[in-house]
């Protein structure tokens, strides 16, 4: 037993597929990430210079329990409400306005009320140097921004 579609039922389905195809093609060739869900499928699409550097971002914090020492803290949603890539995607804004980092301390307190609160945060970009497509074993750290509770 076959349940067929009528011509009008087929027509609007064809129209939907064509519209979606236009949006996905547009996203790939002229759009950007903010076109989601039609944004370009750019996973691993950038070229990395075989003799350049691989960047990796991390944060260090000072806690109320030990305010004199910087310790590395995870950039994860269950710790600060954001993940590492989201911090990396905002690195220019953070550099211009380090006070944004205070909101991470607030989110951390809301998500982990039992942890000692953070009284300082700094964002560091670590550059792993490459030669001929492989790591040299050396790295260089850049301090992007720093916030301290006053």
């Amino acid at each position: 037993m076959i349940v067929p579609l009528t011509l009008p039922q087929k027509a609007w389905r064809v129209a939907v597929v064509l519209l979606a195809a236009v949006l996905f093609l547009g996203g790939t060739f002229v759009g950007d990430d903010d076109w989601w869900p039609f944004s370009p499928w750019r996973m691993f699409s950038t070229s990395t210079d075989p003799n350049g550097a691989v960047r990796s971002t991390f944060i260090e914090v000072r806690t109320a329990a030990a305010p004199a020492t910087w310790v590395e803290a995870p950039i994860s949603p269950d710790s600060v409400g954001l993940n590492r890539a989201e911090i990396e995607g905002n690195i220019d804004r953070i550099a211009k306005d380090p006070a944004m980092l205070k909101t991470l301390a607030d989110s951390h307190t809301a998500l982990r009320p039992d942890d000692p609160s953070w009284v300082g945060i700094r964002v560091v970009v670590r550059n792993y140097l490459l030669r001929d497509g492989g790591p040299t074993g050396q790295h260089r750290d850049d301090l992007v921004a720093e916030w301290r509770a006053s």
């Binding site: 060739f29 699409s45 950038t46 070229s47 990395t48 210079d49 075989p50 490459l130 497509g133 492989g134």
Partner: peptide, 15 residues
Amino acid sequence: RFGGWDWVNSATMAR
């Protein structure tokens, strides 16, 4: 578009 035709010879997977 984002990596260029030379993407195939880049260090993307090494990264």
